[in-house]
């Protein structure tokens, strides 16, 4: 009896909720259709990760692989260098997140304090320019900076140290990669935080000032809390993308001498020449990366929800 009435209540609540959100659902409809047609329908293509895809039979009719369809995954896991490329991928992403995640926040906070509007706009515009310069060109600049007679070595030798071919030693690669990411993306990534900061109600500053807070404290108590939701959402996505390191850039910067630290999953797949050739294997690799990424997002999202009440769902 009780169960039934509970159920009744549940459905009537659901119905109320549905009724209340009918306008919202209506305006969402084009979006939902979009997701179905352009995202969910093509997802049947993922099954080729479990098949020996050949063009002639197509996606549906290609034969399933051995090992219950997991042949390509086992091949990946059994690669002698699997551990190396996995470790490099994860570490490179982690370091990038660790160091390049805070910089746009700091930049946005600083920009927010700049008083001269023209100066502020100039800084912002200039700082996001590297984002638009093609990676090929940026990497060309980096290799030039790092060559024996390049800018970095000129600075190094100014301090009386020996010139080094930085790109020849595995130990420098991660640093180089992370710094270049910071250089290229900080300005661009700060834009979102600028938008979040403009959400702050100016009266809060007033109130804070009356309480005798100095400007640093204002940043601490007003600005930072106001951008935290944005930051958390971005962080969750970043962590979800941990398996997809910016592989084009690695490709342009690395060389065989530093495969030890620089070779990532993406570059291995590229080198093996299977992009556009062995669709099954490359789909399996991609699916592996996706699954890990999605699991990480679910976990971080849960943690974030507990700690900060910001959550993706």
């Amino acid at each position: 009896m009780r169960a039934i009435s509970n159920l009744k209540l549940y459905f009537s609540n659901q119905y109320k909720s549905f009724k209340r959100s009918r306008f919202l659902l209506l305006i969402m409809l084009p979006g939902i259709i979009y997701y179905i047609i352009f995202h969910y329908v093509p997802m049947y293509g993922l099954i080729i990760a479990f098949k020996d895809f050949n063009i002639y039979d197509g996606i549906i009719n290609s034969p399933w692989t051995s090992n219950y369809g997991f042949k390509h995954f086992l091949e990946l896991f059994n690669l002698p260098i699997f551990y190396r490329i996995l470790k490099n991928t994860v570490l490179l992403s982690l370091y990038t997140i660790l160091f390049s995640f805070p910089t746009p926040i700091i930049l946005a906070l600083c920009l927010n304090e700049a008083k001269n509007k023209l100066w502020k706009n100039t800084v912002q515009t200039v700082s996001y320019l590297p984002h638009f310069i093609s990676t090929v060109v940026i990497c060309g600049m980096i290799t030039n900076f790092l060559s024996l007679n390049g800018l970095v070595n000129n600075i190094v030798s100014f301090f009386g140290l020996e010139r080094i071919q930085f790109l020849l030693y595995p130990k420098y690669f991660r640093t180089i990669f992370v710094i270049s990411e910071i250089w290229q993306q900080t300005g661009w990534n700060s834009i979102l935080y600028m938008a979040a900061l403009s959400q702050v109600n100016p009266e809060l500053y007033e109130a804070c000032r009356i309480d005798g807070a100095n400007r640093f404290q204002q940043i601490l108590y007003i600005n930072i809390p106001s951008i935290i939701p944005t930051a958390i959402i971005l962080l969750i996505f970043k962590i979800g993308g941990i398996m997809n390191v910016g592989f084009e850039k690695v490709l342009l910067l690395y060389n065989p001498n530093i495969y030890e630290t620089a070779d990532v999953i993406g570059t291995y797949v590229y080198r093996r020449g299977i992009l556009g050739a062995e669709f099954s294997f490359s789909t399996a690799v991609g699916l592996f990366q996706s699954v890990i990424g999605f699991i990480l997002v679910v976990i971080t999202n849960k943690i974030a929800g507990k700690v900060s009440e910001v959550s993706l769902w």
């Binding site: 060309g140 290799t143 030039n144 060559s147 024996l148 071919q165 790109l167 020849l168 060389n255 001498n257």
Partner: peptide, 9 residues
């Protein structure tokens, strides 16, 4: 620098 020389260099 033979190992790293780019075409541009």
């Amino acid at each position: 620098e033979y190992a790293l020389r780019t075409t541009a260099q």
